[in-house]
Each structure stands twice: as C-alpha cells, then as structure tokens.
C-alpha cells in the first residue's frame, strides 16, 4: 500500500513538472532560449573578464568561487560555523551515548595494505583541490570532504588506528581564528569585513585573486579537520574535554 502511494505521488510530481516545463505558456523557457542578458550573472562575468577594466574586481578564474568566497564571504563563514556547531554537537552526544561502532571481523589484509598507499594519493589530491579552488572547480568544501574521507578510510581499514590525531583539534581552532583575523585585517585596512586587501594579480596564476585562495585554504583545512573529528568521535566513542 505504501509503495503504491509512493508511486502515485511520484507520478503526480513528474506530471506537474513536465506539464509546467513543456506547455507553451509556462514561465520556464525551453533549454537555451532563456536570455542571459537580463539576468544578474552577466554583470558578475563582466566584472571578472571585461578587458576594458584596469584590474579585474576579484581576479579569480572561477566565477563561482569568486562569488562564494569574495562577494559572499561572510555567508561562507556562517556555513563553516554551522559545521563547527554540528561537530560540537556530535562530540557532546558521543560523550553521552558511549556506543562504539563494532565490527565482527578484522579488516582484511588487502584493504589494510591498500589503504596505506591510497590514503596518500587521496590526501594530496584533496589538498590540491582546495589550494586550486580559485582556478578549477572544487574548492574548500570538496577538498575538506576528501581529507575527511581519507581519515574515514583509515579508521575503517586499520583496527590499530584508533588514536585521535591531536593536531586536528589545534588545526580546527587555528583555521577558524585565522578566517576571523583575515576578515578583521580587511576591516581595518579597507573599511569592511573580509575586504580584499591583497593584490589581485593575473587571472590563471596560482598566486592571484587576492584573499580568495587564502580563505579557501583555511575553509578546506577547517572542513577537513572537523569531518575527521566527527568521525573520530563516532569510532572512538568518548571525548575527553
């Protein structure tokens, strides 16, 4: 019965979406017919690549990154704070529940040895992803998730690896405070929080786009260490604070 209702609901939603998309007088334009001239995105593209400007406004080759970290930098800081609060919640609950994840069998030899090679590749490519966040797709959040996933792999595939890496607690706090400090330096030099006080440089170089790469590296470090801390809380099951 439940399944039939689910199928009926799915069909109803699908019909609604399709009729709205394909009827002639709907608000949604057909693919490729929407004019981008009247939207706000053109303005942001121009700010970055317009050759008439003396200096590009953000200098970031990836426009999405320039919006996420430069124009909406304060918002990104809020997102990182949300992650921090959830990590704190997991740590507190982990102390109350004291229930560990237990496996019936030890991890096998193949995954145990394979992990010791693969984790290195995952970690360095995760760091590559967030250092190059202003040049390539990606950035702080995917890179941090990759670092967290590398530590999840270590917890899963090595039953000796139960020691929490103490450096992460330090790293998390350090990255969070450095984001604030970068914002405050902007406040004191330019007049508002997270002001871009570094030179923009040339688009496409690694050292360009002002404070965007700095902030993204910090965000990546913070996300990675937080995810690793959450996983550590789940696997070790107790907190000492």
């Amino acid at each position: 019965m439940k399944k039939i209702i689910a199928i009926l609901l799915t069909v109803a939603v699908a019909l609604f979406v399709f009729t709205n998309l394909y009827s002639g007088d709907s608000d949604f334009k057909a693919f490729g017919e929407k004019s981008l001239e009247e939207t706000v995105s053109k303005e942001f593209v121009n700010k970055t690549v317009d050759p008439q400007r003396v200096q590009p406004e953000t200098g970031s080759a990836n426009i999405v990154t320039s919006i996420v970290v430069n124009y909406r930098g304060f918002d990104t800081m809020g997102e990182v704070t949300v992650l921090f609060v959830s990590a704190l919640g997991v740590a507190l609950l982990g102390g109350v529940l004291r229930k560990k994840v237990t496996f019936r069998y030890k991890p096998g030899f193949i995954i145990n040895q394979g992990m010791k090679i693969i984790v290195g590749i995952i970690l360095i490519s995760g760091i590559y992803i967030f250092v190059h966040g202003h040049l390539t797709p990606g950035g702080g959040f995917p890179g941090g998730a990759m670092i967290g996933s590398a530590f999840l792999l270590m917890y899963l595939s090595d039953d000796k690896f139960r020691t929490r890496i103490a450096a992460f607690k330090v790293l998390e706090g350090l990255a969070g405070s450095l984001i604030m400090i970068v914002g405050l330096v902007g406040l004191s030099t330019g007049g508002y929080f997270l002001y871009n006080f570094l030179p923009n440089g040339e688009i496409g170089q690694l050292l360009s786009a002002g404070i965007v790469p700095v902030l993204y590296v910090l965000v990546g470090l913070k996300v990675g260490s937080e995810v690793s801390n959450i996983l550590g809380d789940f696997f070790i099951g107790e907190v000492e604070e």
Binding site: I118, I122, S125, I129, H132, T136, P137, G138, P142, M146, S149
Partner: peptide, 11 residues
C-alpha cells in the same frame, strides 16, 4: 579534476 574526486568518493 572532477573525475579524480568522483573516483575517490566511489572507492
């Protein structure tokens, strides 16, 4: 780059 991320997460 996206392929690398996807491969890692799939594994």
């Amino acid at each position: 780059d996206i392929a690398i991320i996807y491969g890692v997460l799939a594994f």
